[in-house]
């Protein structure tokens, strides 16, 4: 069940990128996305756990880049959502591999997939809502938000360094 869902999510993350970039005449990027997607699909069988994180980073960065160069945000949002869910399911299947056959895996899988489906629906709904809400903010607010983001990032990096 999880394997099927993961495959579906990888395809959902990969296909909008390929379509978007192919339509924008950036076929090399589309081929690159297809390559990473295929590698991700292959990693499900070969159990290369690192590929999921690589796929997530690549797909979401590429989706962000696509939005920036003017591709459809709805399509790119679908890609972000697909990549996120596929990445989550890759880790979930890794965790499930450590379970034993006597465990109630069906119930765990069902709970996880239901929670993930609701999260996907909420996430996509939020993307759609955000795309239709336009707020005008002043330069001062933008400066404040950028500064807060940079400081937050630095603080997070420090904490992770201490923790790791």
């Amino acid at each position: 069940m999880v394997l099927v869902a993961e495959t579906f999510c990888i395809l959902a993350g990969m296909t909008p990128l390929i379509i978007g970039y192919y339509q924008s005449n950036l076929s090399m990027v589309a081929i690159g996305c297809a390559g990473i997607g295929l590698l991700w699909l292959l990693s499900q069988w070969r159990r290369w756990t690192w590929v999921a994180t690589l796929g997530l980073l690549m797909f979401i960065s590429t989706a962000g880049l696509g939005v920036w160069i003017g591709m459809s945000p709805i399509l790119m949002g679908l890609s972000v959502l697909g990549s996120l869910l596929a990445w989550d399911l890759a880790d979930f299947s890794r965790r499930l591999r450590s379970a034993v056959p006597e465990d109630d895996l069906r119930s765990l899988e069902k709970n996880h997939l239901m929670r993930l489906a609701s999260l996907g629906a909420v996430g996509y709904f939020l993307i759609l809502v955000a795309l239709f809400i336009h707020l005008q903010i002043s330069f001062g607010w933008i400066f404040l938000l950028v500064s807060a983001s940079v400081l937050g990032l630095l603080e997070l990096a420090k904490r992770l360094q201490r923790g790791g």
Binding site: V67, W68, M76, V80, I127, A130
Partner: peptide
């Protein structure tokens, strides 16, 4: 870049 669409893309990740 003053592109709200990029902020919108971050929303599912934040919710997650």
């Amino acid at each position: 870049t003053l592109r709200g669409e990029l902020l919108a893309l971050a929303l599912p990740l934040v919710v997650y």
